[in-house]
Amino acid sequence: MEKEHKDFTSISGLPDELGIDADLSKVGQTLTIRKDTRRYGKPMTIVSGFEMDRADMKELASELKRRLACGGTILDDEIELQGNHVERARDILEELGYRVA
């Protein structure tokens, strides 16, 4: 079953070109970032709390991996990044308009 998409433009009456849907959907969710330790003591940065579809998560994961120069993946609605990037990931996500707890 597909997640219900919120259409903020129809509520606000503003034109689609302004991109208000994307901005409001970012502000409406609170992400959490934590560090985890995996096999052989390797650190992983886990970003969770997303309320978006898989394609948008994939695009965001690609942006984070590019800007942090690391590998990563999406598992169980979380973005996993190789290495300890908690502070830098927080800064990037806030710069992109997300609220991070």
Score class of each variant (00 low, 15 high):
Leu31Lys: 14
Gly41Val: 06
Arg88Ser: 11
Ser25Phe: 04
Glu4Asn: 07
Thr9Tyr: 01
Asp56Asn: 13
Asp56Tyr: 12
Ser10Arg: 01
Thr30Pro: 00
Pro15Thr: 08
Gly97Asn: 02
Val86Phe: 04
Lys65Arg: 15
Glu59Pro: 02
Met1Trp: 12
Leu75Thr: 05
Ile92Glu: 05
Val86Glu: 06
Glu87Asn: 04
Val47Ala: 14
Lys65Ile: 05
Ser62Glu: 11
Gly97His: 01
Leu93Val: 08
Gly49Pro: 06
Gly49Ser: 07
Ala61Arg: 03
Val100Asp: 09
Leu96Lys: 13
Glu94Leu: 04
Ala61Phe: 03
Lys42Leu: 14
Gly83Thr: 01
Arg99His: 14
Ala55Thr: 09
Ile11Thr: 02
Met1Phe: 10
Gly28Met: 05
Gly28Glu: 02
Thr45Gly: 13
Thr30Asn: 12
Ser62Lys: 14
Met1Asn: 12
Arg54Asn: 14
Glu95Met: 14
Arg39Ala: 13
Ser10His: 08
Glu63Lys: 14
Glu17Cys: 06
Lys35Thr: 05
Met1Thr: 06
Lys3Cys: 05
Ile92Gly: 01
Ala69Arg: 07
Phe50Asn: 10
Arg38Asp: 11
Lys6Ile: 01
Gly49Thr: 04
Ile20Gly: 00
Glu94Lys: 15
Asp16Tyr: 09
Ser25Gly: 07
Ile74Trp: 01
Gln82Val: 14
Gly83Asp: 05
Asp23Asn: 03
Lys42Ala: 11
Asp21Glu: 12
Ser10Ala: 15
Glu87Gly: 01
Thr73Arg: 08
Leu60Ala: 00
Leu81Trp: 10
Lys58Ile: 03
Asp23Gly: 06
Gly13Cys: 07
Glu4Gly: 10
Gly49Glu: 11
Gly71Lys: 14
Asn84Arg: 15
Glu2Ile: 06
Asp56Pro: 03
Lys58Met: 01
Ile46Leu: 15
Thr73Val: 06
Gly28Asn: 14
Thr37Gly: 09
Ser25Cys: 08
Glu87His: 08
Gln29Gly: 11
Ser48Gly: 13
Lys26Tyr: 09
Arg99Thr: 11
Ser48Tyr: 02
Glu63Arg: 13
Arg88Lys: 15
Lys3Pro: 02
Ser25Asn: 15
Lys26Val: 08
Leu31Arg: 14
Ile79Ala: 01
Glu2Gly: 07
Val27Asp: 08
Tyr98Met: 12
